[in-house]
């Protein structure tokens, strides 16, 4: 099953809508609730990242019999130092993002803790692609 969702820059009102839709789909497919939670927590952090830090982007989810692969592709500005961004506590979040309860530098570390495979590719000026895979 292939699903696609568009996310928009600074669209905090709808932040989480794509994650919520994928959660409902996984529940309908009777995926183990603990696995669903891991997928959704990782995806939600990635979705918030695309809205808070990037100029929006796309979320692509492919659900197979034994796994889900989610790709969050944003339109930039890109991450200059991925290793720095992966460390807990490091953040470039705006005050607006912090007011929403995010921006403490836990997004990427939280994603890493919840997925079986994580691949972050970023080019400054072009964008970031976060690909994650969780096995059922």
């Amino acid at each position: 099953m292939h699903l696609e969702y568009q996310v928009f820059e600074a669209d905090f009102v709808n932040a989480g809508a794509a994650s919520s839709a994928i959660k409902k789909t996984l529940k309908q497919l009777n995926v183990n609730p603990q696995i669903v939670k891991r997928v959704v927590v990782a995806l939600y952090e990635a979705e918030v990242n695309a809205i808070a830090h990037a100029y929006g982007g796309m979320i692509y989810a492919d659900i197979e019999a034994d796994r889900i692969i989610v790709k969050v592709v944003d339109k930039g500005p890109g991450i200059p130092d991925i290793e720095w961004a992966m460390q807990e506590g490091n953040s470039t979040a705006s005050p607006e993002v912090r007011n929403m309860g995010f921006g403490a530098g836990m997004g990427l570390p939280n994603i890493r803790k919840n997925v079986d495979r994580l691949d972050v590719q970023s080019t400054v000026g072009v964008g970031t692609t976060v690909e994650m895979e969780v096995h059922f």
Binding site: A15, S20, G101
Partner: peptide, 30 residues
Amino acid sequence: LMSDVLTLGDYNPVILTGLCNMQTIRTCEM
């Protein structure tokens, strides 16, 4: 901090928070 709330694994504790916006509800949903 909603990212902290997302680190609770399989627990379902009562959440006390002073953050009051849609993200509070969405984060708890996730």
